[in-house]
Design a protein around this nucleic acid. Structure first.
Lengths: 192, 192
DNA sequence: TAGAATACGGACTAGCGGTCCGGTTATGTC
DNA sequence: GACATAACCGGACCGCTAGTCCGTATTCTA
């Protein structure tokens, strides 16, 4: 078993995550260097790199932090057979949008390009769980079709896609509404 | 009027584009430095940067080169009322997939993150033309709904999306088939 | 062919991600 | 409470990159 994390190490880890999050939100993820983050956190670069390995590791840790208190509950609700399957699917996408895409946009913006194995793994879990529920909603569909739908629905609440839509004149609420109604339409196969 | 491009300048421009394309295909876009490209093209770095401004400018020029002999014809066919609207939409997405996504994947992979204004402009033209044709296919739909559908269809033949699907075990032909049948389903509103 | 305009190219700069190691500090033990 | 030790700290340092600059060479025009 790994020994308990030393108090100073834990304190610095928190300071780094906090500073990184703040700087990225203020300046955009690729206007922030690792030295900036170390300085703002009041630690040396060595500390930062030892803790998180490299830049991708730090970004990944920020992503973990963003998802960790949403994901378990969201997956539970997705599997909760008390509600209609289609409603569960739409609610999952809504939660993803509200809890991850919107608050994490400055962070997520540059992440698509450098998807780490860890994030791809998590993404696939979501896809697979969604596919199950879509298959429940649409027993008429071939299995792979449900799987593909899950991929499509998950690709809508992407930071760069939302950016594009906003740049085209939609408000963030318009974007949310459109994505969700498109999701419902896709799953049910008929207009809402 | 701008004076004619000098012969040596034209020769070097071609050499640079050729070398850049080759190196990126061989090594992946972010394993290739600007110096690598200059060396491979047999020119100095100054020449490369004067011609293309910066890295984004060069990538952009490669993208232009990729699209320039597909786009005009594709837009013509998209507007050709001899065919059914839905077939035109699907054909456009198919062309985008076959002529841009697949051959340009090594190039396109890292482009999502750094979308230049020029590329966004072109993307919006495609979206707007697609939206028109979708509206013809589905006069029952509100106009903004057709516009959103166009955005969704255009986001499917993305390099990173195709990569993800391939990583999930699909062949490139599976991916193509799924994207096109999803496009048809989305536009018609009923299973194929 | 001469002169002007333009392009060439490689040495140079600033700043980045990432490493390393001598000094420091928290922690468990007696 | 004092000591031994393992873990942690931080900033100097390295290799490399995108991008600049300017003296020199080439092309175009008349």
């Amino acid at each position: 078993m790994a020994p308990r994390e030393r108090a100073d190490a834990a304190r610095n880890r928190r300071a780094i995550l906090l500073a990184a999050h703040r700087l990225i939100c203020e300046n955009g993820v690729d206007q922030v260097s690792m030295s900036d983050i170390a300085d703002a956190a009041g630690v040396g670069k060595g500390t930062l790199f030892r803790r998180f390995g490299d830049r991708a590791g730090l970004i990944n840790a920020l992503f973990e932090q963003l998802t960790e208190d949403w994901e378990p509950e969201a997956l539970d609700r997705l599997g909760d057979t008390a509600a209609e399957p289609v409603d569960r699917v739409v609610a999952f996408i809504a939660g993803l949008f509200d809890r991850i895409t919107v608050p994490g946009r400055p962070l997520l913006r540059a992440m698509g390009a450098h998807a780490t194995p860890e994030r791809v793994r998590r993404y696939r879990i979501w896809q697979s769980r969604l596919a199950d529920v879509i298959a429940q909603a649409r027993p008429d569909l071939p299995e792979e079709e449900a799987g593909f739908m899950a991929y499509v629905l998950l690709t809508l609440p992407r930071a760069d896609f939302v950016d594009l839509l906003e740049g085209g004149g939609m408000t963030i609420d318009d974007v949310r509404t459109r994505i969700l109604s498109h999701a419902r339409l896709t799953v049910t196969g008929r207009p809402c």
